[in-house]
Structures are given as structure tokens and as C-alpha cells.
Design a protein around this nucleic acid. Structure first.
Length: 571
RNA sequence: CGGCGUGUGGCGCAGCCUGGUAGCGCACUUGCUUCGGGAGCAAGGGGUCGGAGGUUCGAAUCCUCUCACGCCGACCA
């Protein structure tokens, strides 16, 4: 492609709607253009990137035995009413009516449609297993669209749905998808991690999220650098302290804390580590007043808490409820001297193992130090893991210490089991002629989100650094003086033609621009390999090669440049 | 949904407080010069100031309503 025949629209300044580097760069490079909140046009340059991601996803899905189809983006309400999700999905679903006032939605996902296909098409175990996928535009009316294509309302997703005869067969399909996903992200040249994800009501170890590692990620991940453990922070187990609780060594005493209403402030005043303080969180579970105790440096994990018996439906106590129970303002609350018949006390495992700790005194402007279980207050009613892990915690697999990083979720694989097949009567006949619900799995990849995530992970002050696999063009030829020097024009045209016959996606910048403009544009849009052709080096029958990724420059003879580029692209 | 903020040529902004000819940089067009890191000079084109209503002799500017967009939040005392 010649730039004179293409459409480039680069900007020096980013529109101020963008916050994240990737979002700014995508707008500046002219990859996308915003139409409305969460709605983006993929401009010709950006579409080339999107298509390359799609192509890799498609190849790996096909290789894993999945079959591509394409379902309607608009779906009738009846199917969703049948599965019960018409009401459940809520305002995230864009609902529309046709001219007959019949209800439809713009598909936020396709479980219902695919299950309908399966239940009418698949009758026998002999037809299984099957795995269908599509690359489709979805619409989810996000509460707050942001970060450009990373959290858009309309987006491109690859979604696959598998059907197996039983759980064991599903597990095999699942493992194959796990491998396919790893292949996709590896081929795209991304740093990623597969992490165990929350399986919600279905349970089991049947779900993994694939995250591209980036500081701007919306999810916090806990991982162990010395093993392969990785999990969403909400899900990672905080291992119980190995050492037994120490004996009391201090006497209980009041501490004057006139203004210290937080653990951190109290610890600072006393000159002690935050780890010796305990914070109290008051909740209501139905009519039951509940107190949770956490170490000062820990945070409550509501997902873990909700899994404790009787805590499925809890809420935070109001300030009135707090005052009614403690007769004390927030900021000085503690578990000592309270009426334990009226409260359920849940202690985190780390709290249960503490001695000589500091808590609120239940009177304004005072805390108590030197507090000990058994001696100063009865043991907790429940001891459980109710906190988020923090860096430095022991890894649940015992093979090291946890680190926390941030990630952008770009893939999610899930063993649905029979949730939808039972709801929608999606059954097959087994070898004994018995009707069985199909075992389903679903597997998503955020195709358009990947483009944003990849840029978030690979950019510098000049612009985007695309990998060979994702770049809109693999090589750009920048002739210096294309319109003035016959030698330059001849050499550039010859190289351009040769690279094209080699099947390389090459861009020839034949604009009558100054070199600086061409360099800056090509760096901004992230073409990984640049060949500069000018009179000076041509005199020695050489051209200049520059790598966008590391900035290295080499002078290469004209006879070797094609081979050199082929080598770079094969890496 | 709640809080805050922003809407002025394609992009980035000033002007608004204190009402009186709509401005700057980038981009765009033409000419000349320049030509290996976002050129210089000169001459141009392009804006119902988000929309509606109101106050006023006069509104980008003041008032009311509305729409769009953005940021933060929806949690721990």
C-alpha cells in the first residue's frame, strides 16, 4: 500500500476525552474515531489491526476443532424470557422493539441462541462433541463506558460454546480451549496470565480469566513469581498464619487517641506496626448484628464473607445501628466488653492468631492496647478467611510469596455445565436411549479490547509499538526525497515491489512530506520495521533499517535488505 | 444512579468574572523558498459559540431548562 492511496489521519494532540495512554494513542494514530459514548468507528488503519487479531483467533479456534458460524446480533425476547435472563440481565441489555412492537435485544451474549440451535440440531450422542464459535459485534449498555475500546458499549467479541456428553468430556474440551487461548495471546506477542476466576453459583474449578498485564488494568491479580499460581485478588486464599498465637505479655490499657479514628492513625501515634491493630466492621445479616474483625492492614473480601453460613445477604450497618449497639461514635469501636449474646463475631484467621493487639475502646477518643483473646474477650464465634490477600502473603500453593499486579481481562473460559441446557431443554439421547442434558462450556475473547490492551502494554513517548502479529503494516519504506531523487524513487519502488511479491504487508510512504513528518507518523502508528532510503546511503548501495521496538538502527546493503526483513518478521 | 466538571472551526485552547466587530496554535488551500526528525515567509478558506427559552437596545458572556461528553463514586468506621 502507498500512503498516497491510503488514509492516514494522525493528530499531534490527543482529544481530551481520552485518559489512558492506549486510548490517546489510538485516537492520535487514527485507528479509531468516536461516534458516541462507548461507540467507535474502526478507521481503515485500525481495522487492519483488528482483522489481524481476528485472524489469529480464528486460526487457533479452527486448529482446536471449533466451527465458525455467525448468529444474529439482534435476538428475540422470547428466548431470553425462557432462560429467565430477560429480567435478570437488567439495564445492561439494550432492548429494542420492531414495527410490530415485539421485544428484541441487541445481543450482549449468545448463550440462548446457541443453545436453541443445539437443542434443535443435536439429538444424539453420536453428534457430540461440538464446539461452535463466532466473531460478532455485541452491545452491552455499560454503566460507565471508558478507556476507548477497552470498555466500549459496542465491541467485537469471539464467543465459543461447546457441547459434550458428560463432565469428563467437557473438561477435555475446556483444556483444549485453555491451550488455544494461550496460543492466541502468545502469538499476539502479549504478556499475559491465566488466572483462576470466580465460578459464582456453579462452583468447581471451571473458570479461568486471561489477563494482559498492564498497570492500567481494571482487575487486581495475585500471583506467585516462583510458581504458576495466579488468581483474581477477590478469589485468592489468604493462608492461615503458620505460627500459633503468642501468649499475652502486656496488660490491657487505655490509649488516649483524641483524633485518631483509623487504625493507621492509631498505629502512627503509638509508634507500632499497623499489623498490631485490629479494625472492626459492623454488618447486618437479616436481623443479626455481625462484627467482622480484620488486621489493620487488611481489607474485607465481601465475596469470601458471603460464603459463610448466614452471611449470603449482608449489608453494612448504618451509623444509627452502630450507635445503638456500641453507644459510641465510629472510629473508636472495638470487640472488648460488648454484649456477645446480641452479636455474631467473625474474625479473620490472621486476627484469631494475634496477641497483645490494639482495638477501639468503645468510648470516644480512646483505644485499648495489650488486648488478648481468652483473657480479655471470648474467642470469636467464627474464624474464617474473610480478607483480600496482600503482597507478601504466602502463596496458597505454598511455593512462594504473592505479588499483586494489574491486568486487563481479554479472555474468559467457563464450564457452564448444564445451567442453560436444563433451562432450555437442550438434551441428547445417550447410548442407552436416555435423555441427558448437554454439558456446555463457553469461551470468550474480547477481540476489540485486545487492541487497546496490547497498546497499553506496548508504547513509548513516540507512539504505539505493535508486534509483528498485530501491526497494520509489517514494514514501512520511508524514501527521503521520493519526489526529487530519481535514484531514491527507483530504489524505493523496487524494494516495495519485491516485498510485495514476498507477501509482506508493506507501506510505501510516497507523500511529498519532509522526513521528520514521515518518521513521526510511522512511529506513532507503530509500524514495527522501517526502511529509510536516501541518496546518502544509496551511494554506498545501502539502506537504513530501524526497529520500532528497540530503536536499533542498522545500515544494510540493498542486496540483503529483503532477506533481513524476512528474518525480522519470522522472529 | 449520586457528586463534580466540560461543551467556542477537524484537534488543542483563550475570550465569559466586568454583555458591545469571535480570537490563538495545530491541521487545511495557494504561491515561493526549504528538504534525514513534526520547516519558513506570504496570501487564503472554514465557526447559527451544544440546544431551547428568558433578561437586555445588544448575549459566547447574565438567568432558567435541556442535551451531550468526561472524571470520581456506588465499600470497610
Amino acid at each position: 500500500m502507498r500512503t498516497s492511496q491510503f488514509f492516514l489521519s494522525t493528530l499531534k494532540e490527543a482529544p481530551n476525552e481520552a485518559e489512558l495512554p492506549s486510548h490517546k494513542l489510538m485516537l492520535r494514530a487514527g485507528l479509531i474515531k468516536k461516534l458516541g459514548s462507548g461507540l467507535y468507528t474502526w478507521m481503515p488503519l485500525g481495522l487492519r489491526v483488528l482483522r489481524r487479531v481476528e485472524a489469529i483467533v480464528r486460526e487457533e479456534m479452527n486448529k482446536a476443532g471449533a466451527l465458525e458460524l455467525l448468529m444474529p446480533a439482534v435476538q428475540p425476547a422470547e428466548l431470553w424470557q425462557e432462560s429467565g435472563r430477560w429480567a435478570v440481565f437488567g439495564p445492561q441489555m439494550l432492548k429494542i422493539k420492531d414495527r410490530h412492537e415485539r421485544d428484541f435485544c441487541f445481543g450482549p451474549t449468545h448463550e440462548e441462541v446457541i443453545t436453541d440451535i443445539a437443542r434443535t440440531e443435536i439429538k444424539s450422542y453420536k453428534q457430540l462433541p461440538l464446539n461452535f464459535y463466532q466473531i460478532q459485534t455485541k452491545f452491552r449498555d455499560e454503566i460507565r463506558p471508558r478507556f476507548g475500546v477497552m470498555r466500549a458499549r459496542e465491541f467485537v467479541m469471539k464467543d465459543a460454546y461447546s457441547f459434550d456428553v458428560d463432565a469428563a468430556a467437557l473438561a477435555k474440551t475446556y483444556a483444549r480451549m485453555y491451550q488455544a487461548y494461550s496460543n492466541v495471546f502468545t502469538r499476539l506477542g502479549l504478556q499475559f496470565r491465566a488466572v483462576a476466576a470466580d465460578t459464582g453459583a456453579i462452583g468447581g474449578d471451571g473458570s479461568h480469566e486471561f489477563h494482559v498485564l498492564a498497570d492500567a488494568g481494571e482487575d487486581a491479580l495475585a500471583y506467585c513469581p516462583t510458581s504458576d499460581f495466579a488468581a483474581n485478588v477477590e478469589l485468592a486464599e489468604a493462608v492461615a498464619p503458620a505460627a500459633p498465637r503468642g501468649e499475652p505479655t502486656e496488660a490491657m490499657r487505655d490509649i488516649d487517641t483524641p483524633k485518631q479514628t483509623t487504625c493507621a492513625a492509631v498505629a502512627e501515634l503509638m509508634g507500632i506496626p499497623l499489623q498490631r491493630t485490629i479494625k472492626l466492621i459492623a454488618l447486618m445479616a437479616g436481623e443479626q448484628f455481625v462484627i467482622c474483625l480484620l488486621r489493620g492492614d487488611h481489607n474485607l473480601n465481601e465475596i469470601k464473607l458471603a460464603k459463610i453460613d448466614g452471611m449470603a445477604d449482608f449489608r453494612f450497618a448504618t451509623e444509627e445501628e452502630l450507635r445503638a449497639f456500641f453507644n459510641c461514635p465510629p472510629g473508636f469501636l472495638g470487640p472488648v466488653g460488648i454484649d456477645r449474646t446480641r452479636v455474631r463475631l467473625i474474625a479473620d484467621r490472621s486476627v484469631a492468631a494475634m496477641n497483645d493487639f490494639v482495638v477501639g475502646a468503645n468510648k470516644p477518643k480512646f483505644h485499648i492496647a495489650g488486648v488478648n483473646w481468652g483473657r480479655d474477650l471470648p474467642e470469636a464465634d467464627v474464624v474464617a478467611d474473610i480478607r483480600n490477600v496482600i503482597p507478601g502473603d504466602v502463596s496458597p500453593d505454598g511455593k512462594g510469596v504473592l505479588e499483586i499486579c494489574r491486568g486487563i481481562e481479554v479472555g474468559h473460559i467457563f464450564q457452564l455445565r448444564t445451567k442453560y441446557s436444563e433451562a432450555l431443554n437442550c438434551n441428547y439421547l445417550d447410548g442407552e436411549g436416555q435423555l441427558q442434558p448437554m454439558e456446555m462450556g463457553c469461551y470468550g475473547i474480547g477481540v476489540s479490547r485486545i487492541v487497546g490492551a496490547a497498546i497499553e502494554q506496548n508504547f513509548d513517548d513516540k507512539g504505539i509499538k505493535f508486534s509483528n502479529a498485530m501491526a497494520p503494516f509489517s514494514v514501512v519504506i520511508v524514501p527521503v526525497g521520493y519526489q526529487r531523487s530519481e535514484a531514491v524513487k527507483t530504489a524505493a519502488d523496487a524494494l516495495y515491489a519485491e516485498l510485495q511479491t514476498q507477501g509482506i504487508d508493506v507501506l510505501l510512504d510516497d507523500r511529498n512530506e519532509r522526513p521528520g513528518v514521515m518518521f513521526a507518523d510511522m512511529e506513532l502508528i507503530g509500524i514495527p520495521h522501517r526502511v529509510t532510503i536516501g541518496d546518502k546511503s544509496l551511494a554506498e548501495e545501502k539502506v537504513e533499517y530501524v526497529s520500532r521496538r528497540d530503536g536499533n538502527t542498522e545500515l544494510i546493503s540493498q542486496t540483503n535488505i529483503v532477506a533481513t526483513l524476512l528474518g525480522k518478521l519470522a522472529q
